[in-house]
């Protein structure tokens, strides 16, 4: 079984890898590019821990093959901060204690960032539904929703 050579961009960096066509983008990010910030919680698109954006579109990297990444722009949790400057969402998640174990956090941050880019003023209900595909078992979502809503408010004030 021959492997495919894939050239793509992750967090702005040009990268290449070889993959079996059965390997998912998640497998490739983690095992070939050492970007282990993106997590596998289910492998069936039900938990959102593997959330990334592809061409600006929020997807589960476990539901996309590595070969499909050819020529695409991919953003992961590792690309959210700008150098040593945390993204406002990252700061708020720490400030609000919006994480406990932290394994869902990368996916939730990627998803929440995508929300705020599309909708700078989401209601609580919109935020909850947007994040419904990101399971968190620790927090009951309360502090997560508050952190996202407050980040949105802060970003609106700043702009």
């Amino acid at each position: 079984m021959s492997k495919f050579h894939v050239s793509t961009q992750v967090n702005g960096d040009a990268v290449e890898f070889l993959c079996d066509p059965r390997e998912t983008l998640l497998d490739c990010l983690r095992d070939k590019l050492n970007l282990t910030g993106t997590k596998e919680g289910c492998g069936t698109g039900d938990c959102g821990a593997c959330s990334v954006t592809v061409e600006g579109r929020l997807v589960c990297s476990c539901l996309m093959l590595g070969v499909e990444a050819e020529g695409k722009q991919i953003e992961t949790v590792e690309g959210i901060a700008d150098g040593d400057m945390l993204h406002p969402l990252q700061k708020k998640f720490i400030e609000y204690a919006a994480l406990q174990c932290g394994v869902c956090t990368p996916g939730i941050l990627v998803a929440a960032k995508s929300l705020l880019e599309k909708n700078p003023n989401p209601t609580e209900e919109e935020t909850r539904y947007w994040l419904a595909g990101n399971l968190c078992r620790c927090t009951g979502y309360d502090k997560i929703i508050r952190a996202v809503m407050d980040t949105a408010a802060e970003l609106r004030e700043a702009s």
Partner: peptide
């Protein structure tokens, strides 16, 4: 929390 930074950056 001391592990906050590591957990929000992956």
């Amino acid at each position: 929390r001391p592990d906050g930074l590591d957990k929000v950056t992956g």
